[in-house]
Design a binder for these strands. Structure first.
Lengths: 192, 192, 192, 192
DNA sequence: CATGAATGAGCTTTCATTCAT
DNA sequence: CATGAATGAAAGCTCATTCAT
C-alpha cells in the first residue's frame, strides 16, 4: 500500500468526521458511522488515531491550518493596513460561507470540553498569525490603543456572528451589506 | 409536599443540568448525574420533563428569560440611547462574568443540534427585546443605516467574545478595558 | 362515598385495562395509562387490586363470566340439542364480533403466563357450563363418541379461529358463510 | 472466527429468545437474559438484529419456515387428497407435540401486537402452501364448497386447540384419540 | 496494515408500586 | 378513601474500543 493511499485514508476519516459533526454534533457522530462514511473498517481508524478524542482534536488542528492558509491567501504586505484588514475580514467571511462544515465544526469544538484537551502551545501556534497581524497595527498606531487580545476577540467575534447569521439563511446578505459590516468593524477599531 | 418544595425540585433539576453541562458538556452529563446532583431519583426528572432533550431546551428558555431580565434591569428609557446602550453592553458583560455557567451553557446550546429543536416562535420571543431596542435606534438615526440583524449580530458577537476572553482567565480585564471595548463597539455602530 | 360509586370506579379500572390491553397488548398498558383512562389516580387502583397481575386476572374472570351469560342467553333446554348447539355456536361468534375487545383480551390472556396464575378451580368453574353442555350430548349419543375434552377443544378452537378471521377484516363473512361454517362443525361432531 | 461459528451465534440468539418467550412470555424475556442464554454480550445481539421487535419477528419467520418444511415432509402428491390431508393433520399435531416451544411462541406471537409488524407479503408467503393445498381440494370438489379461508381457519383452529390440550398435560391423548379427532375434522370438511 | 464481529459499561427511559398528604 | 409525586430497579439500546483473523 502506498503512502498516497495511506494519506487518503487518514484524510477520508478526518473528512467523514467533519461532515458528521457539522451535521449532527458530537452526540450523534459515532465512530462506526465515521468508518462507514470514510469507507474503512472501524478498527482502521485506530491505526491513525489513538482515540475519538484525539481524532477530533487532530481534525481541529488540521482544519485550522487549512483555514488560516485560505484566509491569508493573496495578502499583500506592501499594501496599507486597512486594505489588508479588509481583505482578511471579507476573505474570512467568504471562506466560511463556502465552507460551512468547517465553521459549524469550529463553533462546536471551541465550545466543548474537547477544546480544553488541546495543548496550550498548539492553540497559541494556531492563533499567532492573526494575533501578530493585529498587534503590529496597534503598535504602529493604526488601530486604537486597546489590548490586542481585546481587539482580536471583538473583530473575530463579530465576524463569526456575521457568518452564523449568513449561514442560518434567515437573512440574505448582499456584498454591499458585507461592505457596511466591514466599515462598522473598521470604524470601531481604527485609531481616530 | 408543599408547592414550594415542588417548585424547588423542578428548579433543582434545571440547576443541576446547568452545572453539569457548563462544566462537562452535553456528552458527559448523564441523567443519572443530574438526578444525583439534584437529590432526586432518576425517574423523578421525567415527571417534570418528557425527555433529556426537552429538559435541556426548557433550561435554555428558562435561563434566557432570567438573563434578559437582568440585562435590562435599571434600563431608563428616558435617557439618551447611547447611555442606555452602554448600560446594556456593560450589564451583559458583567452579568455573564458573574454567571459563567449560564454563559458556557448558552454557547454550547446555541452551537448544538438542540438549538434547532426550539420552535421558531420561541426563539423570536426571546430575541425580540434586544432586537426592538436596537432597531428603533436605527430608525431614529442614532445608529448606522445597517440592517438591524447585522448590527445585532456584530454587537452581540463581539460582546460574547469579550466575555469568553474574560472568563478564560488568560487576560485580566479591568473596567477601563471594558470602557475601551465599549467605545470600540459604539464608534463602529453609531451614525457619523 | 356510596357503594355505587365504588363499584363504578372498580368497573372503570377494569374497563380501562381491557381497552388498553386489547389495543396495545400487556406490553404497552402501564398502570399510569389505566389510571388516566379510568379517571382515577394511580394509587387508587391499588385499593381495588393488589397488583397489576391481580387486576388482569380479575379482569379475565369478570369478562369470562359476562361472556358466558351472553352466550347462553336465550338457550332453550327443551329444544333438540342440535338447535341448542347451533344457537350456542352462532351466539358465540356474534358476541365476539360485537365485542372484539373482549376477544382480543382473551386470546392474549390465555396465551400468556398470566393464565397460569389462575387457580385451577377458577378455570374449571368458568369452563364447566360449556363442558357440561357438550358432555351430556356425548352421553346421550347425539355426538360422536369422542372424549368431550377433545370435542370441546375442536369446537371452541374452530369457532375462535372463525372469529379471528372475521375480526381481521380480511374476509367479509356473510351470515350464510356462518351457516356453512356451522354445518362444517356440526357434521364433524354429530354421531353418524 | 469461522462462518460456522458466526452462524451459530445468530442461531443461538434466536434459540435463546424462543426458549425464554415460550417459557416466560415477551414480558419477562429481557435482552440481557437472551444474551446470557445465548452466551454472547448484550451488544452482540444488535449486530444481528436491529431491535428486539425485529429479532422477535425474525424468529417467527424463521420458525414458521422450519415448521412448514416439517409439516409437509413426506407429503406424497400422488396419493388421494384424504390421505394427504390426514398426513398433514397428524404431522402438524405431532410436530408441535415434540416442539412445544415453537407452539407456545407462535400462539403468543400471533396474539400480540408483534404480529401486526410483519409485512403483509411475508404473512402471505408463509401461509401460501397450506392455503394452496386446501383451496385446490375445494375446487376439485373433494371438500365442501365453503370459502377456503374459512375452511383453513377451522381446520387450523381446531388442530391448534388439540395441540394446546395435549401440551397442557391435563388430558392424555392416545393415537386412537388423534384418529378420532382427524375423522371429526374430516367429516366436517369433506364434500357429502 | 485492514478488517468488522464482539464486547460490556453506561446511556436514556419506563413503570409497578409506595406513601405522605 | 383518594391522590399523584416520588421512587429506583430494570428495561432496551448505543458505541468507543479491542483483537483474532
Amino acid at each position: 500500500m502506498t503512502n498516497a493511499k495511506d494519506f487518503d485514508k487518514r484524510e477520508a476519516i478526518l473528512q467523514a468526521m467533519l461532515e458528521l459533526i457539522s451535521k449532527h454534533g458530537f452526540h450523534s457522530s459515532p465512530m462506526s458511522e465515521v468508518a462507514k462514511k470514510a469507507n474503512v473498517a472501524a478498527g482502521t481508524i485506530y491505526h491513525y488515531f489513538k482515540s475519538k478524542d484525539e481524532l477530533i482534536c487532530a481534525l481541529y488542528v488540521h482544519k485550522r491550518e487549512t483555514t488560516l492558509q485560505h484566509i491569508f491567501k493573496n495578502d499583500d504586505p506592501s499594501k496599507p493596513f486597512k486594505d489588508r484588514f479588509r481583505h482578511f475580514y471579507l476573505q474570512t467571511i467568504n471562506y466560511f460561507t463556502t465552507n460551512p462544515k468547517e465553521f459549524y465544526f469550529f463553533e462546536q469544538f471551541m465550545n466543548s470540553p474537547y477544546y480544553g484537551m488541546l495543548k496550550k502551545e498548539e492553540i497559541t501556534r494556531l492563533e499567532q498569525p492573526i494575533y501578530d497581524f493585529l498587534r503590529k497595527a496597534v503598535f504602529t498606531q493604526v488601530l486604537r490603543d486597546v489590548p490586542p487580545k481585546i481587539l482580536i476577540a471583538m473583530v473575530v467575534g463579530s465576524a463569526n456572528a456575521l457568518i452564523k447569521l449568513r449561514l442560518s439563511g434567515e437573512f440574505m446578505m448582499t456584498s454591499s451589506d458585507l461592505e457596511l459590516a466591514f466599515f462598522t468593524c473598521w470604524d470601531g477599531i481604527k485609531r481616530v
